[in-house]
Amino acid sequence: MPVPSRRDDAPATAVTGHADPGEAAFSAGAPRAVDSVGLGRARALLFVAPALLLIGVFLLFPALWTLYIGATNFERTGPNHVNPQVTWFDNYVDVLTDPSFYNSLWLTLLFVLFSAVIGQNGLGFWLAWSTRRLHRRVRRVVESLVLLAWILPSSVVAFLWIAMLDQRGGTLDALLGNPGTAWLVEYPMVAIIVFNTWRGTAFSMMLYSAALSSVPPSQLETARLAGATGGQTLRDVVFPHIRGHVLTNTLLITLWTFNDFGPFLITGGGPGDDTEIAAVYLYNTAIRDGDLGYSGAISLLILVANVVLALAYLRMLRRRDSS
């Protein structure tokens, strides 16, 4: 089943779509192109063949397979499992008229916006910015703690968060002296947004730490001497230097978060469908309900959403390059 790996495939597809090695091969062999390496068409093809094969087997084939399954009424069990029928676009029509699909898209949008674009980005940058002048050792400690959240196994982390947010004897309720709040039931979306922010901030922090070191200290010094406030310095001195990093970082974490399955371990998409974000919706449809054809259609639509997102970011990135 390609379902669990879909979150990895999607961004990769989007990215490789633009670094298509096949393209290089074709242009290398085109009559008017300059064959600067002197390989010739055949040998050039030979060189890219392994890469093409891998892409074909692990990206192209699953994608086409999903496309095919999405056009059938294939199910995990029962008569439609034994004798699936090709139903063409029925699944797509059903998905596009299914309120659950829009619910999951909406939740995913909230999830991505608050936990990745705002949460991880903001917190990551803030951590990188505010610790940059601290003593080396202090910074290491902070970085290690943040990194720990990133590298712990998901199942361990999920267990800890469930224990922390539990209604009876949960750590958070104990700390607040406010027993009886079932955080995962009463505020499920907030819970997974905070969770994902905590979980993924390390990447943004590391990236911004590196990016900030590319800001010339002399300019910062100048800004300080000119009496610029912190906000002005960030806007006029720092940001122009790291804009590319911001966009790249946002692109990456958006795509990751869009396809993130982690919250499933904490809420299972529930209560009801309150946290059924795209990846969880897909899993529930395919694995829990066994509607493989239907979920094939959903995953293709999610793939399209991913590509659209990636293209939008890439366009922004290119506009920056040309400006």
Partner: peptide
């Protein structure tokens, strides 16, 4: 993407062909 602004007609056909065969 820059390199593919003017893809040769032949390569476009070849790609379509590959895609159709693959499908």
């Amino acid at each position: 993407m820059r390199g593919s602004i003017r893809p040769g007609a032949s390569s476009r056909r070849a790609r379509t062909f590959t895609l159709v065969t693959g499908l």
